[in-house]
């Protein structure tokens, strides 16, 4: 077997992991699987695309940085897009999820609402940007040769590095800061958290901001490495869920490992069965983990 499969799998897996940490955070603290998370990924990519175009128009375009295909315009746009995606998530929570939570709606009703929101957002994005794919840059990437005949592009390396940095940063944030401690307290027991002096609404807003910013990062990475389409996030949703459940809902390192497993699974599927079956890998892994170990590889029993 060509070892290149592993490089492709790890690159794809790091992208999935990035999206899955956001999903798993929201899932464990707000206690529902958000089907609109994929649309946050998509919206993030399109926000960055639009902002990059605006910045490009304002300064007359920026040259690529070093060996990468993207310039400073895209880096700046990425930061702006994270803010915009976070705002979108907060708006969604304010008009939809928060009202349902306040009413004491069952988890599954909130899931259904997220399902409706996902559909509306996806089609809304398609209306604005049309269904045809878009690209951040047309620059060609020359793959670097690694020992063993492996090839990897500088952009892929940048994506891996970004994932690593963000995962470590989020992990430290959640385990070491007061805000992260509040998030873990709300995750365990929202009612007690309020009695212990935590502003639960503010903590939930913080979770959305963090989850959305990570979704946006995943969207921009996917947009850079592949392409930007209105369905990109929706197509990523099953791999994201598979990764989150594989890692144990709520476990950030678990989500990343789960993402890598799904990414490798997809790459192996492509190698052995053909590219048309790629999307089946996440489903098979999901079914396998539900049969064997429903709490995930790193999940606590009863989690």
């Amino acid at each position: 077997m060509n070892p290149q499969v592993f490089v492709d799998g790890i690159v794809a897996g790091s992208m999935i992991g990035l999206g899955a940490i956001g999903l798993t955070l929201v899932y464990s603290i707000l206690r529902f699987p958000n089907f609109a998370h994929g649309e946050l990924v998509t919206a993030g990519a399109y926000f960055a695309l639009s902002l990059a175009a605006l910045i490009g128009a304002a300064v007359g375009g920026t040259a690529p940085i070093g060996p990468f295909s993207f310039g400073w315009a895209i880096v700046l746009a990425a930061l702006g897009a994270m803010v915009a995606t976070a705002a979108l998530a907060l708006a969604l929570d304010a008009v939809l999820f928060q009202r349902l939570r306040r009413r004491g709606a069952a988890v599954i009703i909130i899931v259904m609402a997220s399902f409706g929101a996902s559909l509306a957002l996806r089609s809304g994005i398609e209306f604005v940007y049309t269904a045809s794919p878009a690209y951040f840059t047309r620059e060609l990437q020359i793959a670097m040769r690694l020992p063993g005949g492996l090839r990897v592009t500088p952009d892929q390396l940048a994506a891996l590095a970004l994932t690593a940095v963000l995962v470590v940063a989020v992990h430290l944030f959640v385990t070491r800061t007061a805000a992260g401690r509040a998030m873990r307290a709300v995750r365990e027991n929202p009612a007690l958290a309020a009695l212990a002096g935590i502003d639960v609404d503010r903590t939930i807003r913080l979770v959305w901001v963090l989850g959305a910013a990570l979704a946006c990062a995943a969207g921009i990475t996917a947009g850079l490495l592949i392409q930007i389409r209105p369905t990109m996030g929706f197509d990523l949703l099953l791999p994201l869920f598979a990764a989150a459940i594989l890692g144990g809902v709520g476990s950030l390192p678990g989500a990343v490992v789960g993402g890598l497993v799904v990414g490798l699974g997809e790459a192996l599927t492509v190698a052995f069965l053909g590219a048309e079956w790629r999307a089946g890998a996440a489903f098979m892994l999901l079914v396998a983990i539900l049969v064997v170990r429903p709490n995930g590889l790193f999940g606590r029993a009863g989690g």
Binding site: R181, A182, R184, A185, E188, L192, A193, A196, I198
Partner: peptide
């Protein structure tokens, strides 16, 4: 359920001290 079982003892106190 009057303590945060998954948090450390120190964290339980730090939360209120915030």
């Amino acid at each position: 359920e009057n303590i945060f079982a998954t948090l450390s003892i120190a964290e339980n106190l730090q939360i209120a001290a915030e």
